[in-house]
């Protein structure tokens, strides 16, 4: 791998990392939050877990089947 430490390349790499991983990381963080919320807190915790675990399910439905270009 050829590494360039110029600012430009560092910025490009960061931008590329974000483009690739921003969505997966967001989905993962929401999932972890949802898995723990209901375990730690009744009531509000349950509701938060439904929302935060519901988002990845909706994201799959939207990108996978509902969106048509």
């Amino acid at each position: 791998m050829s590494h360039s430490h110029s600012n430009l390349h560092a910025r490009q790499r960061r931008a590329q990392f974000r483009a690739l991983w921003a969505w997966p990381i967001a989905m993962g963080v929401l999932s972890i939050f949802g898995l723990l919320a209901a375990l730690l807190y009744d009531g509000l915790g349950d509701v938060l877990s439904w929302i935060t675990l519901g988002v990845p399910v909706l994201v799959m439905c939207w990108f996978g089947w509902m969106r048509r270009r």
Binding site: P24, M27, L35, G64
Partner: peptide
């Protein structure tokens, strides 16, 4: 790839 990465943590 889509479903795999979204369901990853779960």
């Amino acid at each position: 790839n889509l479903l795999g990465v979204v369901t990853l943590v779960w």
